[in-house]
């Protein structure tokens, strides 16, 4: 299966009532690749991410993760919804980082990291503690292990959230505007962690408005508008020589 991309999205559609948020999206992400999703707000970027992690159920289309169909299984010529258990297992292989962190406020930083691996992977507390401390060290927060999240800055909370997702040893990391809720001076520390992660070979699908990050870290960028990918390619190509009016309008608006 070496030719199979880690993520393959085919003709993905999602509508909320009468409103079509995704109107047929095709996208692949190869192993170790960093793909940034760009586009104006309301263009469907977040919904696309949430479909990959099954926080939303697509209206139509297919998503394959590591060659395995997400959310359904074929049987006698039809696709049947997977059991909760199987869906949970698929989700566990995908890490997600939210705009507003969503750390668990009633648990310490260390407990935030070990909660899911302990319950889902059923691994020993001691081993998980040691691993969690390594992960915290990696995001530069080893000293904060026993603090409660409310005592951390936004940037620190988001770095903990990244470490929490990594604690599940995901094969894919999804980032949903990870720096949009941060004070400007705290954005850099989160992007640094993400850059390190990309350099270590993590496969990442990132919704962001940080054009510098997209330009320097992404292997590919895809521009969404009105629920469709209007343009995609290497950052140099898309930023340097945008082909589509929508892309040009979007990039112009940022400068």
């Amino acid at each position: 299966m070496s030719g199979e991309p880690l993520v393959r999205i085919e003709a993905l559609r999602k509508r909320f009532g009468a409103q079509e948020v995704l109107g047929g999206v095709d996208l692949t992400v190869d192993r170790g690749e960093v793909v940034c999703l760009l586009g104006p707000s309301g263009s469907g970027k977040s919904t696309l991410l949430r479909c990959v992690n099954q926080l939303e159920e697509p209206t139509d289309g297919r998503i394959f993760l590591d060659g395995e169909l997400v959310g359904y299984r074929p049987r006698r010529g039809r696709l049947h919804r997977l059991s909760e258990r199987r869906i949970n297992r698929q989700r566990a292989a995908v890490g997600m980082v939210f705009q507003h962190f969503h750390l668990f406020p009633h648990r310490t930083v260390l407990d935030n990291l070990i909660l899911a691996p302990r319950l889902v992977r059923r691994r020993s507390r001691e081993r998980l503690r040691a691993e969690a401390r390594e992960l915290l060290d990696r995001v530069g927060l080893a000293a904060k292990a026993d603090e409660y999240p409310a005592r951390l800055s936004g940037g620190q909370q988001q770095r903990v959230a990244i470490a929490r997702a990594l604690a599940m040893r995901p094969t894919l990391m999804l980032f949903d505007e990870p720096t949009s809720a941060l004070d400007p001076e705290l954005v850099g520390e989160v992007l640094d962690v993400m850059r390190d992660l990309a350099q270590d070979g993590m496969t990442m699908l990132v919704v962001t408005h940080e054009m510098r990050f997209a330009r320097t870290v992404a292997d590919r960028v895809a521009v969404l508008d009105g629920g469709r990918i209007v343009e995609s390619g290497t950052p140099d190509r898309v930023f340097g020589d945008p082909q589509h009016d929508r892309t040009r309008a979007f990039l112009r608006h940022l400068d």
Partner: peptide, 26 residues
């Protein structure tokens, strides 16, 4: 907040695990 449930579910916790370890304590 709904984000707490989403964070739990995104980490692979089941509905019941999310309720028991994330939502009810809060």
């Amino acid at each position: 907040p709904a984000g707490q449930t989403e964070a739990g579910r995104a980490l692979g916790l089941s509905r019941w695990q999310t309720l028991r370890t994330v939502v009810l304590p809060q």
